[in-house]
Design a protein around this nucleic acid. Structure first.
Lengths: 147, 147
DNA sequence: CCCTTGTCTATACAAATGGTAGAGATACTA
DNA sequence: TAGTATCTCTACCATTTGTATAGACAAGGG
């Protein structure tokens, strides 16, 4: 699961993407529009500033804006940034590899093999979609629901 | 991420799949071969018995064996069972839907739209692979590593 | 100078996670 | 029927993680 914080982060960035060209957006405006606790959002946005995705302006008429064009911020990037990795197990991360505790030798671990493949598929999809993209709000249910 | 418990569960079931036809496997044998804490494994296997995936036998020469043929236990099933859902956000679960806290109206939530699509892709893949399948241990790196 | 707005560090608190303890229930075997 | 091997169940605990807040501070603009 994505943590609540990651979800807030994504929604905040989407908000900034949607208001590109309108100057800095105040924290309170984002918090209200996106239904994110104000104080928590300060933490989140500060991290985004430090990470270089967002630029902040202090003082009157201050606020936040994206540091990059929306098309250059892909969902895969955001999730890697906030969560460390796309993978479902630490040892299947291409990006933030970590040895699993209490595991088998990796060369023998079928779970790892499977999770590597899955990670690659997830990455392929999440790196195709950026903050500039419209998103199908209710995709067709790809597979049958049997079993 | 998959929890440690989910990973242990999968490895335990793989072990049982690999020993099909050899009679019940004792808990200690599984714990040792799969490097899983013994006491924790008792909890895990009891749950699998209750869930109907595993059959247990007590007394001398007792142990555990799969209740179904390996080919009928798909990774998707196991993850749904132990984790509740394949989805990365509660509101994108086909199986264990839950409303997200502090969210926007769902009809407007682009994150939800994206996560529904992703869930469907993950499900399609994880429901193709069962405990009977060999798994590529180190798949080709599908996408470039740029950015 | 003062108001507005962002920054930073420390905390509080709740929930989930990983793991253990130990008494009990069955089943086989002698 | 005793005895031993094996799984079963409830409760419990410690640690980590996740969510959120408090409050003092820094900086920009008029």
């Amino acid at each position: 699961m994505l943590s609540q914080k990651t979800r807030y982060t994504i929604r905040a960035l989407q908000h900034l993407a949607d208001t590109v060209g309108q100057g800095p957006v105040r924290l309170d405006a984002i918090a209200e529009a996106q239904n994110i606790p104000r104080k928590f959002l300060t933490v989140i946005l500060s991290e985004m500033v430090r990470a270089g995705l967002v630029i902040s302006h202090r003082g009157r008429d201050g606020g936040y804006e994206l540091a990059l064009a929306p098309v250059d911020i892909r969902y895969g990037d955001i999730i890697r940034l906030t969560r460390g990795s796309l993978a479902l197990v630490p040892c299947a991360s291409r990006n933030a590899y970590e040895h699993c505790q209490n595991c088998l030798p990796e060369a023998d671990c079928r779970l790892r093999g499977l999770m590597l493949t899955l990670r690659d598929e997830m990455a392929a999809m999440l790196d195709k979609v950026s903050l500039a993209d419209a998103i199908t709000l209710e995709p067709a249910f790809a597979e049958a629901v049997d079993a």
